[in-house]
Deep mutational scan, measured.
Amino acid sequence: KAKLLVLLYAFVATDADTICIGYHANNSTDTVDTILEKNVAVTHSVNLLEDSHNGKLCKLKGIAPLQLGKCNITGWLLGNPECDSLLPARSWSYIVETPNSENGACYPGDLIDYEELREQLSSVSSLERFEIFPKESSWPNHTFNGVTVSCSHRGKSSFYRNLLWLTKKGDSYPKLTNSYVNNKGKEVLVLWGVHHPSSSDEQQSLYSNGNAYVSVASSNYNRRFTPEIAARPKVRDQHGRMNYYWTLLEPGDTIIFEATGNLIAPWYAFALSRGFESGIITSNASMHECNTKCQTPQGAINSNLPFQNIHPVTIGECPKYVRSTKLRMVTGLRNIPSIQYRGLFGAIAGFIEGGWTGMIDGWYGYHHQNEQGSGYAADQKSTQNAINGITNKVNSVIEKMNTQFTAVGKEFNNLEKRMENLNKKVDDGFLDIWTYNAELLVLLENERTLDFHDLNVKNLYEKVKSQLKNNAKEIGNGCFEFYHKCDNECMESVRNGTYDYPKYSEESKLNR
C-alpha cells in the first residue's frame, strides 16, 4: 500500500503543469573576455578590431598615390635624371617610397634638414613645378651647363633637372645676384646647392675665386655659405661634395641669391598645395585598381571598426592602431551559463540550468507544459528593451572611439638618435595607453552587458513569482510547478501579467 502511494505521488508530481523562465541559446562559437572571465561563450557579439588588409596600394578616395619607385624624396625633388618619370607629377593622395629606393642625390652630399622637408611634404597633396630662374636668361655671365658622370643618364654625363651647376664663363666668375618674388599665391619650395671641391685647383678651375661665398636671403631665411675645400674619400667617382638646401617662400615674399662661386642654382621650384589627408609611407606593396579610405604600408583597410592592429602608420580615415589581438564586445547572452554566478555589478545569474535553442524569437521568455502540450514563448517587451539598450551602447562606444585619422611616422637624422629613441618611447607609451583603454573598455562593457542580461532574466522570474504567489511552488531551476490546472489561456495570463490569483487560489489551497 505504501509503495502504491509513492508511485501515485510521483505520477501526480510529474503530471503537474509547469512554467519556466529562460533565455535564448544557439550554436554560436563566439567568445568574449570580461573583467572576471576569459573566453566566455556568448550567443552574439561584435568585433571592434580590424585585423585584415588587402595587401595592395590603392587610390585614396579615388585619387591615385605618387609612387616614387626607384627614387626617394631627395632624388625626386632635386631632379635626379633617373627620376625623370616623376617630373610630370602634379597631385596625389599620398606618397609612396620603397624601403630600398636607390636614386637620391646622384652627386654625393646631403639634403640639409631632410627630415623636416619630409614632414612638410606629408601635408602636401599637389604642386606646380615651374621655372623659377629661366636657364637661358638668368645667368648671362656664367656657364650653366655643368654636368657630371655621377648623374649620368643613358650613358652620358648629366645633372639634376631642377638645378643648374653654374661655373665660370671664360676665365671669370663675376659676382651674381638674382631674385624671385613669389607671385603664386601659395608657398613655394625653393631648392639650391653649394659645391665643396676637393682641392684649391678644382676650386680655381671651376670658379676662378679662391674665397667664394654663397648667400641666400628671404624674410624668414638668411644664410651665408662658404665652400669647404678638403680631400675626401671618393664616392660615386667624386672627391667633391654638394650640400643641398631648401626653404619655403611665403606668398609675396622675395628670395635673393648672391654668389661669387660654388652656387648650384635653382632652375625649377614648386608651388605647394596642402592636403590634410596626405602623407608619406614606405612600402613594398604594389599598386592595383582599387579604392580605399584608409591606406597602410601593408595594404588598404576598408573598415568602419574603431581599432586596427595592422600597422601604426596610416593615411586617410583609419581606425586607431592598438596592439590588441582581440577586441570583441558582447551583444547577446551567455551561451554556457554559470550556476549560481554573481556578476561584478550585482546581477544574479545561473538559476537557469541552460539556455534554450528552441526559443528563437527572443532573448528571454517562457517554456510551459500542461495537458494541452508544451512550447516556448519569447517575452518580446523585455527582449526589445534589451536590444535597444545594447545597440545604443555599442553604437555609442564605437562612435566615441571611432575617431579616424592619419598617423604618419616621424623623421630623425643620424645625429638625432637620442631624440628618436625618446620619441619611440613616448609613442610606445601612448600606444600602451590606447591599447589598455580599449581593452579595459571592452572588458568592463562585456561584464556589464552579461550582468544586464542576467538581471533581465531574474526580473522576469520575479515578475512571475509575484503573480503566482503560493498558487505554485519554485522547483529550483527557474521553473514553477502549479498547484492547479493551468491551461493555455492561464499560461498566457502569466506571461502577459494578467494572471488571476484569486481564481485559482482555492484549487491551489486544496492541492498544497
Rank of each mutant, 00 (worst) to 15 (best):
G252E: 15
Y160N: 06
N209H: 13
Y268T: 08
R161I: 02
G75I: 02
T29C: 00
H44Y: 08
F144H: 08
M242N: 10
S218R: 03
N182A: 01
N39F: 03
H196A: 14
N162F: 03
Y244I: 06
F270S: 03
G185I: 00
L117Q: 10
N220K: 12
E131T: 05
C58L: 07
F11C: 15
I73F: 14
V181S: 08
F276M: 03
A230D: 00
L249E: 01
G155Y: 00
S219E: 00
D17Q: 08
L117D: 09
L121K: 05
S122P: 01
L36R: 14
K186I: 14
G193K: 02
I73E: 00
S137Y: 07
A25H: 02
W192D: 01
K1E: 07
D30T: 13
F270I: 02
I229M: 12
L7Y: 09
L8F: 13
L4F: 15
W165C: 09
L176M: 00
S273N: 11
H44V: 01
Y160A: 01
H196I: 12
Q204M: 10
G261D: 08
W76L: 07
R274V: 05
Q67F: 11
E37H: 10
I35P: 10
Y94K: 09
S137N: 15
E97N: 03
S150K: 05
G109S: 06
R90K: 07
L191N: 00
V188R: 03
E202Y: 05
L166Y: 04
W139D: 01
D253G: 14
S219M: 15
G104T: 05
A269P: 02
R236C: 00
K135H: 05
I255V: 15
S126I: 04
G22L: 05
E102G: 11
Y114T: 13
E97S: 08
G109E: 11
N103E: 15
D201W: 01
K3I: 12
K135D: 12
F144E: 15
V147W: 00
Y245W: 08
L7M: 09
K61Y: 13
E97Q: 14
F159C: 08
E228D: 07
S199F: 08
L49D: 15
S152V: 11
S137D: 02
Q67A: 10
E131W: 08
E102H: 12
L206N: 02
L60V: 15
L117P: 05
K135E: 10
G55P: 02
L117E: 02
I280L: 15
F130A: 07
F11E: 01
Y180H: 08
V12D: 08
A271Y: 09
E136I: 06
G146M: 05
L191E: 01
S138H: 11
S122N: 12
N103T: 06
G69M: 11
I73A: 02
S28A: 14
D113E: 13
G146H: 12
L77E: 05
F276G: 10
G155R: 09
G240H: 13
W267S: 08
A16R: 03
T177C: 06
